[in-house]
Structures are given as structure tokens and as C-alpha cells.
Computed example of a mutant assay.
Amino acid sequence: MKITVDIDCTPDEARHFLGLPDVKPMQDAMMQEIQERMRANLQAMDPETMLKTWLPAGIQGMEQMQKMFWSQMASALGQEGRK
């Protein structure tokens, strides 16, 4: 036997019925705080400083990936030459 129950209610009604707390005010306050901190940090940094902060890790990662690729290619070619 299969029973299906459809409940038509809003999320607020379901939360109230289940006795769950309304966390929207806390989420709004946290998002406001995060936005203010991000805005303050972005205003403190000029574009050149931001690029210097972000790019070296990306460039270094690309260099490491390129070295790994070439070492794999060299080892594969070395194994083929031995056959």
C-alpha cells in the first residue's frame, strides 16, 4: 500500500509548524558584516597590490603543472626509446 500526502505551505509555515528557529535575521546580519569587511579590504588595496597578491600563486601553479607535464613527457619518451 502506498500513501501520498501533499502539503501546501510556505517555508515559514513549515518552519513554524516544526518548531524550527527563523535564522533569516542572523543570516542578513552576517551577510551585511561580510559585505562591509570585503568592501573595506577592497578599498584598502589598490589594483596593483591585488594583482601581486593573487597572481604569483596562479603563475607558480602553472609553472609547476608545466614542469610536471614535461617530466611526464620526458619519462614516456625515455621508456619508448628503451623498447
Results as ranks from 00 to 15, higher is better:
residue 1 M to T: 09
residue 1 M to D: 13
residue 2 K to P: 01
residue 4 T to Y: 14
residue 5 V to A: 12
residue 5 V to S: 07
residue 8 D to Y: 04
residue 10 T to Y: 05
residue 11 P to N: 13
residue 12 D to Y: 02
residue 12 D to W: 01
residue 13 E to C: 00
residue 13 E to Y: 05
residue 15 R to P: 00
residue 15 R to C: 01
residue 16 H to K: 15
residue 16 H to Y: 09
residue 18 L to V: 02
residue 18 L to R: 02
residue 19 G to C: 02
residue 21 P to T: 04
residue 22 D to G: 02
residue 25 P to I: 00
residue 26 M to L: 12
residue 35 Q to N: 10
residue 36 E to Y: 01
residue 37 R to I: 04
residue 37 R to L: 08
residue 39 R to F: 03
residue 43 Q to F: 03
residue 44 A to M: 08
residue 46 D to Y: 00
residue 47 P to L: 04
residue 47 P to S: 06
residue 49 T to G: 05
residue 49 T to M: 11
residue 50 M to K: 07
residue 51 L to E: 01
residue 51 L to M: 00
residue 52 K to A: 07
residue 54 W to N: 08
residue 56 P to S: 01
residue 57 A to C: 08
residue 57 A to Y: 11
residue 58 G to P: 00
residue 58 G to S: 04
residue 59 I to T: 10
residue 59 I to H: 05
residue 60 Q to I: 09
residue 61 G to E: 09
residue 64 Q to R: 09
residue 65 M to K: 13
residue 69 F to T: 13
residue 71 S to G: 06
residue 71 S to P: 04
residue 72 Q to I: 10
residue 73 M to P: 00
residue 74 A to R: 11
residue 74 A to C: 08
residue 74 A to S: 14
residue 75 S to A: 15
residue 77 L to P: 00
residue 77 L to K: 04
residue 79 Q to C: 09
residue 79 Q to M: 14
residue 79 Q to K: 14
residue 80 E to M: 15
residue 81 G to V: 06
residue 82 R to I: 15
residue 83 K to Y: 10
